[in-house]
Design a protein around this nucleic acid. Structure first.
Lengths: 193, 193
DNA sequence: TGATTGATGTCAGTGACTGCCGTCAGCCTA
DNA sequence: TAGGCTGACGGCAGTCACTGACATCAATCA
C-alpha cells in the first residue's frame, strides 16, 4: 500500500460537498474539509485554487466532452444540430451523477459566491462552444449567438433535470428545451452554418 | 463645515478605480484605497461589501432605469421594442460617463474575480428585465429568453461603446447590435407580447 | 545503493472582512 | 441653554482564505 490513501482530490471534493450541505458554504472552513478527508488545509489548496472551485472539479471534463461533440458533428449539421450532438454527450457524462448533481446544485443556489463561479463556468463554456462552431465554419457573430442560446438551453434543461421529482433523462429534457427555443425563435436560429 | 469631507462613498469609488488601474486589483489593498480617500479600512467596508463591489456602485441605479423604462414602454410595444426603450434610458445614464466606463472596463477585463461579479450583475439585470416583461404580459419562457437576448445585445453594444477609438453614441450602437440580433434570428424574437 | 521525485506536512505570514466599542459634531427637545 | 440622541467614522482584536518556503519520506530510477 502507498504512503497515503488514494484519491486525495476526490476525497476532498466529497468532504467539501458533504460539509457544504450540512452547515452551508460560509460556515465551512477549508481546514474542516481537509480534516474530514484526512489531509491538511495546505493540501486542500494544492488541489483546488479556492474554496469554491472544489465544487466544479468536473467542469473541464464536461466542457471538453461538450466541445468535442460539437466539433465532431457532421459537417452538414447546422449550428443548433451540432449543439444538440453536444447535449447527447453531456447527458452521458451526467447520467450516473444525478444525486451528486442535485446535492451540488442545492448548495450552489444557496450562495452568491458559488453562483458567481457557476456563471463564470457557463461563460467559459459559451466561449468554447462559440470557438468550436467557428471552426466548423459558422460566422463569428452567429457562432457567439448560437453558443449563448445553446448554453441558455443547457441551463434550462439542467435545472429541470435536477429539479425534485423529475425522472426523465437529461437528453430528453435538453431536447425539449431546445425545441422550446426553436418555437420561440421560429426556428431561424438553426439556419446557416 | 461638516465634521468630515463630503461624499466619502464617492471618494472611495474614485480612489479604488485609480488604484486598480495603476497597480491592478490584486495588488491593491482595501487599506490603501481608504487611505487615498482620507478614510480607514473599516469605513471602506461600511460603504462596500467587498473589494469588488466598489466598481459596481452605479449598477443598481442603471438597472432601475433600465427596468423602469421597459416597464413604462407603450403597452402595444413588443418585448424587444420595450427592451429598446430600456436601451435609450441606459444610454442617457452612461452618456457622460464614457471615460469612467472605459477605465473601469479595462480593470474588470484584467481580473477573473471582477469578471465573475460582472456576470452576476448581468444575471441580476436579466432576471429583473424578465420580471418587467412578465408584468407587461409576456409569457414566462418568452420573457426570460427575450431578457437573456436583451442582455446579450446590451453586452455587445456596451463593449463596442467602450472600445478604443469608438465615437458613436451608446444608443446608436445598441440599436445596431439589436438589429444584428434581429437579422440573425429572422426577427421572430420580437413577436408576441 | 544513492539520488531523485512527488505528494504531503509544518510554519509563518498577508490581507479580506467582521464585531465591538469609543468618539464627537449636529440636531432635537425640554 | 443644558442634556440626550444619532450617524458617520476611527481603533482594535479576531477569524479565515490563501500563499511561499522548507521539511519529510515512500517509491522509483540510475
Amino acid at each position: 500500500m502507498g504512503r497515503w490513501e488514494p484519491d486525495a482530490r476526490g476525497r476532498l471534493a466529497k468532504a467539501a460537498l458533504d460539509l457544504y450541505s450540512e452547515r452551508g458554504f460560509e460556515q465551512t472552513t477549508a481546514a474542516e474539509i481537509a480534516r474530514r478527508a484526512g489531509l491538511t488545509e495546505r493540501t486542500f489548496f494544492r488541489h483546488y485554487a479556492d474554496k469554491r472551485e472544489v465544487l466544479f472539479a468536473g467542469s473541464p471534463e464536461m466542457q471538453h466532452l461538450f466541445v468535442t461533440a460539437v466539433a465532431g458533428a457532421a459537417p452538414s449539421a447546422s449550428p443548433m444540430e451540432a449543439l444538440a450532438a453536444g447535449y447527447d454527450a453531456v447527458s452521458g457524462f451526467f447520467a450516473d451523477r444525478r444525486d451528486f448533481a442535485r446535492k451540488r446544485q442545492a448548495v450552489i443556489l444557496q450562495n452568491a459566491e458559488l453562483l458567481e463561479r457557476e456563471l463564470m463556468k457557463l461563460a467559459s463554456l459559451a466561449a468554447a462552444l462559440a470557438g468550436a462552431l467557428r471552426e466548423r465554419g459558422t460566422a463569428t457573430a452567429e457562432a457567439s449567438l448560437a453558443a449563448e442560446a445553446g448554453v441558455a438551453v443547457f441551463k434550462v434543461g439542467f435545472e429541470r433535470w435536477v429539479s425534485p421529482g423529475e425522472e426523465r433523462g437529461m437528453a430528453q429534457l435538453l431536447r425539449g428545451a431546445l425545441a422550446e427555443l426553436g418555437s420561440l425563435t421560429g426556428g431561424r436560429l438553426s439556419g446557416g452554418g
